[in-house]
Write a protein that binds this DNA or RNA. Structure first.
Lengths: 326, 326
DNA sequence: AACACTAATGCTCAATATGAGTATTAGTGT
DNA sequence: ACACTAATACTCATATTGAGCATTAGTGTT
């Protein structure tokens, strides 16, 4: 073997589960620094990446994954994971770390069940992505102000407008990564400062970081927030063309419950009656005949996903966005 | 450094261009065995994968790439690239090759211009994907027959039905990879036999290969046909949500020309009047005022892509499929 | 037992979008 | 002047979508 620097494949997993409170992601148990579960790929022991991901997530959290999908492979120099964190198989100095991101859906947990590991609401890291309440809208508005101050070229201005749904454009909930990357470029997220500081120290980092904390969301280790953004975007987009929500929903659910789930994932409000209409027409769900009467209103029919929704190639949900809040 | 087997990152690029004859992909100049241009990633010299891809494609073919996008990272043991082909940076035995696939659009070439490198119609490798003419439909029908003979579990049967648009399902032009993987699993493409032969030799390969050649399409080195399938699927899907066709079309085009391009890429026929209607309404194109009179019929207006179509986040084309052939 | 309250479910209606044609029209070549 | 060809213009029925009002079946209260 030569003495040439090696390439090390780091695998990161965004494990998503949905509780009543909202979408939650599994964090690695690192002390202090927040990051996703990750491990390095063993070229001898692992036959495929996917198996490796399943392995180390189970090993680290005791949780067996259901749906798993590859997201993106990040190889940028300067944004890579710190080698020290790479675990037992981690390499030496001068090695290049390439990280392959995965998204996994952990299914819904039942009543009393408690999942292993540390779970966190993903909007902690992306407060501006939750447009269901005023808070998120305000955060977004603040960031837009800062971004507009930063944008000088017309391309930058147009990117801001498209990403944040300005000037007649509509907010695309799946453009999570575009928005995050803009914030990174503009130096409005902590990671940007951190990565720049590696090369040239000079700016008053402490002061800036304090300002950032407010609307820029919580930072993550390495490029993990970027991977999380990719996962959120992929999930939000995929809901529309594959019946993937059902992997996050309980076995039996009410249509309102399903709607809540979609709303929480996509961070938007939907029109209730129209949501129900498209769902019933889609053939993806079927009534169980059993009612659910625990909301204080009229009891709701419990539905299950239909067999046809399990066929590979089955379509997703069309989401009727609601303009007005009711 | 340890003596642990290394990981080598192979980069493969599907470089697509469209000529009058159809979509063409750039092949690497290997003697005999057909494959995509590829190179190995240099952990020291290359800052990002994308730059590395641009570099080696230019080096190998003299062609500067426009649009470049990452596809997927393949790491399965047993389907990886032969190490001998990996170029100057290629490693020794026992190393694990991980291949990162990219798609790049090379733009339209003008009249007399000749592109460097060897270009081939991509339907050579996927004859069943061209449903514009009888030939492709027949090939698909043949393969479906073989697949149905192979499918035993109900899951396999349903996958075949969904992928090939059987039993009320509709043919999804972007499911190229699903179809190829089914054919691979069923042993109906040459690569499957080749890869199996590595482990256990035993089947009469020569005889089988001869039968395959007919409808299974031309084989490629390593897992390159899988990467090509991924690229075709991604491109076909992306046409619908990003104005990406314009990166393959000439600067000025007629609507019929643009339609031909889309048809050839997606392998389907479109309804002419409706295509024109959605295009004009979309605001993605604008008339130049100049006419084009070389078809023998009424002269056509030449269009260009509009400035708004260049904004990041601009939508794609909605494709009105034509049932009947006219 | 009647009443208010709440959420679920049902139904309507206008505005678009889509699929499938038929009808003109402006060039080219004879 | 005439046939031919492809481009462009319209038409029409049928979904699909966005928005909203109306009714209903439970729960808890007076």
């Amino acid at each position: 073997m030569s003495t040439r620097p090696r390439v090390i494949i780091g695998l990161s997993a965004v494990v998503v589960a949905a509780s009543e409170k909202g979408p939650e992601v599994l964090l690695s148990g690192g002390a202090g620094a927040t990051g996703l579960p990750f491990g390095s790929f063993d070229p001898v022991g692992h036959r495929t990446f996917e198996l490796a991901v399943r392995d180390f997530v189970t090993a680290q959290t005791g949780y067996a994954l259901g749906y798993v999908e590859q997201l993106y492979t990040f190889g940028d120099k300067g944004r890579e994971a710190p080698l020290a964190d790479m675990g037992p198989a981690g390499g030496g100095d001068g090695d290049r770390v390439v990280s392959v991101g995965y998204i996994a859906l952990a299914g819904s947990i039942g009543e009393g069940q408690r999942r292993a590991g540390i779970w966190a609401d993903w909007y902690r890291f992306f407060p501006w992505e939750d447009r269901r309440r005023e808070n998120g809208l305000e955060t977004a508005a603040n960031l837009v102000r800062d971004l507009q101050a930063w944008a000088t070229t017309s391309d930058q201005k147009s990117r801001v407008a498209m990403a944040f749904g300005l000037a007649g454009q509509i907010w695309q909930d799946s453009q999570v990564l575009d928005r995050y990357e803009l914030l990174y470029e503009a130096g409005l997220v902590t990671e940007a400062l951190r990565d720049r500081a590696r090369d040239h120290v000079g700016l008053n980092q402490a002061a800036q970081a304090a300002t950032l904390r407010a609307s820029g969301g919580e930072a993550m280790v390495s490029d993990h927030r970027r991977i999380l953004a990719t996962a959120m975007g992929r999930l939000r987009a995929k809901i529309r063309y594959r019946p993937i929500v059902f992997d996050l929903a309980p076995d039996r659910f009410t249509l309102s419950g399903l709607q809540d789930l979609v709303e929480v994932l996509c961070g938007v409000r939907l029109h209730k009656q129209n949501f129900r209409r498209t769902l019933e027409r889609s053939g993806l769900v079927e009534p169980t005949g059993v009612m659910h009467a625990e909301t204080g209103g009229r009891p709701a029919m419990l539905f299950t996903r239909s067999p046809s929704s399990r066929q590979s190639g089955a379509p997703g949900l069309t989401l009727p966005l609601a303009r007005r809040q009711d």
